[in-house]
Amino acid sequence: MRNDKVLEIKNLNMTYHSLDGETKALDNISLDIYRGEIVVLVGPSGCGKSTLLSIIAGLLTPSSGNIIVNKSNDSINDTGYMFQKDNLFEWRTIRDNTLIGLEIQNKLTEKRKEFVENLLDTYGLSDFKDSYPSQLSGGMRQRAALIRTLATKPDFLLLDEPFSALDYQTRLVISDEIGQILKKEGKTALMVTHDIAEAMFT
């Protein structure tokens, strides 16, 4: 029996309440994710994919059910979250954008800077470190956003349709690239998408 489980979801339910009534977003969801796996959930818009990620990240409280995180990860705070938009700051260089998470966490050491520099060099952004987001293609911006997420060295990554803003061909290429990066870095990830082809390329 495998004992390297990173995340365990048991009978998760989420219902939104409003003046117009109730909307059930998640119904009895159970899921196990093991270390080193890249799990992709595919479903149409509005089926609760982003709600699930928000609950895992601790941004929402479920109506019922349990989320169990492997204790070797200390806490769910060891999770990196990559959103649909790259959310790069246009007034900061690519290098500075990738370092912002470390700045916020007050972990910007020389060793961490070197780690990020190596990521930029390894994944094709070495010539664009001092460029601004507006000077990069959509795919390169997404790579920068992923490096920003990896900079804090999370054990577990959540990816919320991170390629949806790209055109179809670029989306497939970048999803394959991101998948290769995650595998090379040995990361565990849960990604949600509405695109079956994108899921297959990741």
Rank of each mutant, 00 (worst) to 15 (best):
D160I: 09
D86A: 03
R2E: 10
V40M: 11
T51L: 08
A189K: 12
D176N: 12
R35W: 02
G101K: 08
D127M: 12
D96I: 07
F201G: 00
P154G: 14
T193W: 09
H194F: 11
M14N: 04
G46P: 04
T152V: 15
D78L: 05
R171K: 13
V69K: 02
R143P: 11
S175R: 09
A165V: 09
T193S: 08
T122S: 15
I196Q: 13
A197V: 08
N3E: 04
S137F: 07
G138I: 08
R95A: 00
F115S: 04
L7V: 08
N70Y: 00
E37H: 11
S137N: 11
F115G: 00
L12S: 06
L41Y: 03
Y34P: 01
I68M: 10
D160P: 06
Y16F: 15
D121A: 12
L182G: 06
P133E: 04
K187I: 09
F163M: 15
T149V: 12
D78Q: 13
H17L: 06
L159Q: 06
G101V: 09
N118A: 08
S18E: 09
G65Y: 02
A189R: 12
L12N: 04
I100S: 13
S72G: 00
E110Y: 12
S164Y: 01
D86N: 10
A144Y: 09
L41W: 03
R92V: 06
D155K: 14
A25R: 02
G138Q: 06
V40I: 15
M1Q: 01
D160E: 05
I68Q: 10
A57Q: 07
N73Q: 12
E110P: 06
D27Y: 10
K71G: 12
K71V: 14
N118C: 02
L88F: 03
S54C: 06
